[in-house]
Design a protein around this nucleic acid. Structure first.
Lengths: 145, 145
DNA sequence: GTGAATGCAAAAACTTTGCATACGC
DNA sequence: GCGTATGCAAAGTTTTTGCATTCAC
């Protein structure tokens, strides 16, 4: 079951299918991810959960279980904390990150999937579940200044 | 100037060309990187610098300056701390990481360089200095068990 | 000699653990 | 009711900051 934010009513179904209890914190965190257009970290989530008073420990534990179940994935933006976004399927995207101002932008072209079989064959690995692919450089504005 | 470990006598030349003073800690850290076949973190470096008694703060500050000068680059292995390895040039490699036992293996095929111009053109970015590309999955041994 | 680099102490930032209570199913 | 999920307190880990001293050039 993929959760893409276009199925807000099915949050309970999704959690049930993964044998996770539908608690307010989890439902709210699914919403936060669905509504976020950029990767976010634990602090961002806590901020957006203000009304609920969800403990930060719960946020961390929920992130861990969501990641384990494949709902979200880590994104390394080199910002000192772990960022996450929803797992998309086949046609996922990656990011351009400005090392000066921190701006994050998506890009689509990802040919890793196509290259995977060849890489695996030459390696001692048997399976690849996810991958990172972020580009670090300067956005137009920071490049100019 | 690229430092690839095959130029141990030229460590001083390298540092001078980057306007960094050739201190014992920096020279030793260049050696540590040249001798390491895998990405390493601050703790690993401190261990391998035992005889020198280099403060951990110095290790962090040196890592920051080496990265800024392009001698090393960050590698995100999702292990809770920042790993680094020497910046190679055109023909660099990336990594397969076992999410079970932590094993790290190199792979070569990287087509990011070729795809870069097209990605940049469609973006609001002007330059890309480095990129991540690590594959997370299971090594043969962990896959079997 | 001078400015950069280091060491030490302290703190900040991020994340995890243990345990008692609360809540979904 | 049962077992998972949460909150709170505490601690662990990783990284950064301030300042006085030392060292490379």
């Amino acid at each position: 079951v993929k959760y893409d934010g276009g199925m807000k009513k099915d949050r309970r179904t999704l959690l049930k299918s993964l044998r996770l209890k539908a608690t307010p914190a989890r439902l709210a965190m699914l919403d936060v991810f669905a509504l976020s257009s950029k990767p976010i970290n634990a602090e961002h989530i806590s901020e957006r959960l203000k009304g609920l008073k969800v403990d930060h420990v719960t946020v961390y534990r929920t992130l861990a279980s969501f990641e384990e179940k494949g709902i979200i994935k880590q994104v390394d933006l080199r910002k000192g904390s772990v960022y996450y976004e929803l797992q998309e399927g086949e046609h996922h995207h990656h990011h351009l990150v400005c090392t000066d101002c921190g701006k994050v932008e998506d890009f689509d072209a990802c040919e890793v999937g196509a290259a995977l079989p060849g890489i695996l064959k030459k390696s001692s690995f048997k399976a690849v579940d996810s991958h990172s692919l972020e580009l670090f450089g300067l956005c137009r504005k920071c490049f100019a200044s």
